[in-house]
């Protein structure tokens, strides 16, 4: 039986790991390479590196760090942030990324997902959607959650999957950073709309939030979090033991 994946997310700016609350107020935490090795040894099933750098200098630092990580950590690496073109796919894949997640880039350029899927395969393309309720409707936000695109989220995600995205990361802006649990209602809506793996993001505050996620929504494939892992509030090995004790299949 395939196991539920636990995925720490490392937001990287100028070569350092940072994590904001509701995407604002960044705090420096640690070295991405050190953290990646640590998480891999603790039983993380996959790692996400999210590049939040805007400058080209920062981008170079990011790819250097990615290369160094990929040469030391032998679990799947997903890279996101600043992926706007096929050249961006090429750049990070050559540095050792296995999957590439697109967000604003896919909103700006509707051809990005189909072209990337054709070149690198569906399994390589992840649609990462930042979604927030606006007047009771799930809306897609762009630019790191700052700009309402006005698009209805479920239709948008379905279209991306139809175009070749092989996996969905659903980040609920409503629960992100609040540490009060994943957005089960939003996740349920997405799981019912697509047949590819869905990764839950935004809102994990404790071990019970993951247990509740996988118990309530067996269709969710993975749980992603950042700060609770980085600050040691939740250890990945404890988390997986607890999930196993609750009958949820995990790799231990």
């Amino acid at each position: 039986m395939i196991t539920k994946r636990i995925i720490p997310c490392l937001d990287v700016k100028d070569g350092r790991v940072v994590k904001g609350v509701n995407f604002e107020g960044l705090n420096d935490v640690s070295s991405p390479v050190t953290l990646a090795e640590y998480y891999s040894n603790c039983g993380a099933d996959e790692l996400v590196f999210y590049d939040i750098t805007a400058s080209s200098d920062g981008r170079k630092l990011f790819t250097d760090i990615l290369t160094e990580t990929a040469s030391k950590v032998f679990i799947p690496l997903t890279v996101g942030g600043g992926i706007n073109t096929i050249e961006d796919f090429d750049r990070v894949l050559k540095c050792g990324a296995d999957k590439v997640s697109v967000n604003s880039g896919a909103i700006r350029n509707p051809d990005l997902i189909p072209e990337a899927a054709k070149l690198y395969g569906d399994q390589c393309v992840v649609i990462s959607a930042d979604v927030k309720r606006v007047d009771g409707v799930f809306r897609v936000f762009a630019k790191g959650g700052r700009e309402n695109t006005g698009m209805e989220a479920i239709e948008w995600i379905k279209r991306c999957v139809g175009n070749g995205a092989g996996e969905v990361v659903l980040n609920s802006i409503d629960t992100d950073g609040v540490k009060n649990g994943f957005d089960l209602e939003m996740l349920d809506a997405v799981c019912n709309a697509v047949s590819v793996p869905v990764i839950a993001s935004g809102g994990a505050g404790c071990i019970d939030d993951f247990t509740k996620l996988f118990k309530t929504l067996p269709k969710v494939d993975a749980g992603l979090a950042a700060s609770i892992f980085h600050f040691g509030e939740v250890s990945i090995s404890d988390l997986k033991q607890e999930l196993k004790a609750n009958g949820i299949p995990v790799r231990i």
């Binding site: 395939i2 569906d122 399994q123 092989g166 590819v196 793996p197 494939d221 993975a222 790799r251």
Partner: peptide, 10 residues
Amino acid sequence: YKIPQIGWNY
């Protein structure tokens, strides 16, 4: 079951 199979299996 989802397609592709993505993840850790024994």
